[in-house]
Computed example of a mutant assay.
Amino acid sequence: MTSSQEWVEIARDIAAKLAVDAVERDRAHETPYEEVRLLKDSGLVTLLGPAEHGGGGQTWETAYRVIREVARGDGSIGQLLGYHYLWAWAVRLVGTEAQIAAVEELYTKDKLFFGGAVNPRDSDLTITEDGDELVYSGHKSFSTGSKVSDLTVLEGVLEGTGDHIFAIVPSRQEDIVFHDDWDNIGQRLTESGSVTIKNVRVPWASAAGYVDRKFQPLTYNTLNVPAIQLVFTNFYLGIAQGALDTALAYTRDHTRAWPYGGDDKASAGEEWYILEGYGDLQAKLWAVEALVDRAGAEISEVLHAPREQLTPQRRGELAVLIAAAKQRASDTGLEVGTKIFELTGARASAAKYGLDRFWRNLRTHSLHDPVAYKRREVGAYALLGQLPEPTWYT
């Protein structure tokens, strides 16, 4: 049985391998089939899967740390792994006990990789009934994991009702068309382009959480948003940590002391402003890490508890804590991504070093939803005692 710390060490080893050619792979912008193969071969894909089917049997607390470590080597691959964990857990969030057992056995035994076509800012997919089948159709602007996924999570609204229905389908079918249109400045290897869903058929029996075509809601169903917001937070932190690691290594090997300040030093490692600058960034990242780890431990306890136990109050408290962690990781990460150039020096801006990729990666994904609203959620809780209402983003 592999321990939690051993899984983190496996993730650290994967990150080191990814970091070797991260700059070149970012430039090439090719579909990361080999990178996902690394995740599968290492066992990280089935970290949360049941041990009886060959999975790691680990908790979300470990999964969050693993996401962070992988992102330290490559932010795109950390994001892919984090989204995979969330979508693999989706059946636990809303499915029946029988559906949970079937999906977890399937993906764990075969080391299948998840993607999702569930962008709430687009119109919902339309679902129509055809006898004992549901038929999904529509278009989504973003589908992270698209071409590297084995399974895709769909979500839509049943025509003539307000009922949202999740379903898990094979990614490789002619009725799912992934478009090669992901061309953003950062997170370039996440395969987050658009997707067209054309009459994808799903048995009614596979409608997640539905029994006799009726859904019985639980507060637990709404944990998908806090859980994935903390996925974001962890790969933001991992990207920032990777930026600091890379900058420190560059300064040790290349940065020269400044000879015109009246306090000449023999090396950059003696230069007071460089030491002060790195000390400030490191302290801030340690502080963010402590907050993020606290959030990970608290939501992990809830995610692995009986689903019926979760109350709206506890759910809201977790959402606020994660909102606080996310804003800190985003703001501090962006500061690190900028400040490292002042500490490494002019030559570090050469394209061959790729130091800009950390800021680009974090800036790109941190726009997923406005961080100002996360600050507002925390403020409303602190000042007014208000908990955020569950939505697609809170």
Rank of each mutant, 00 (worst) to 15 (best):
L47R: 06
G49S: 04
V36G: 00
T59C: 13
E34I: 02
L39N: 01
R37H: 12
P50Q: 05
G57P: 06
E34D: 14
A51M: 12
E52V: 15
Q58W: 03
S42T: 05
S42C: 08
G49Y: 00
E34F: 03
V45A: 13
K40I: 06
Y64K: 12
G54L: 08
P50L: 06
T46A: 15
L48I: 10
D41P: 07
G56Y: 00
E52C: 14
Q58F: 06
L38H: 07
L39D: 00
L47H: 08
S42F: 05
R37V: 10
P32E: 00
G54V: 09
W60R: 11
T46D: 11
E34C: 02
V36S: 00
L48A: 08
Y33C: 04
L39Q: 01
A63W: 03
E61T: 15
T31R: 02
T62S: 13
E35N: 10
T59W: 11
T46H: 10
G49M: 03
T46W: 03
E35H: 09
R37S: 15
L39P: 01
V45L: 08
E35P: 03
Y64R: 10
P32F: 01
T59S: 15
R37M: 14
G56T: 04
R37L: 14
S42G: 08
E35S: 11
Y64C: 11
E35F: 02
E35C: 09
E52S: 15
L38K: 02
G43R: 09
E61S: 15
L44N: 09
G49L: 01
Q58S: 12
T62R: 09
A63E: 07
L44E: 05
Y64M: 08
G55R: 06
E52Y: 12
G55F: 05
T62Y: 06
L44I: 13
G55W: 03
P32R: 00
V36K: 00
L48G: 02
R37E: 14
G49R: 00
L39W: 00
L48W: 01
P50N: 10
S42K: 03
W60H: 11
L48N: 02
G56F: 03
G54H: 09
T62N: 10
G57F: 02
T31G: 01
T46N: 12
V36L: 01
T62P: 09
G57H: 04
Q58G: 08
L39A: 02
L38E: 05
T59L: 12
H53M: 05
L44D: 09
P32S: 05
V36H: 01
T46E: 12
A63I: 10
T62A: 14
K40F: 04
G54D: 04
E52T: 15
W60C: 12
T62V: 14
L48S: 07
T31S: 07
G55V: 07
P32N: 03
V45Q: 03
L44H: 12
W60V: 09
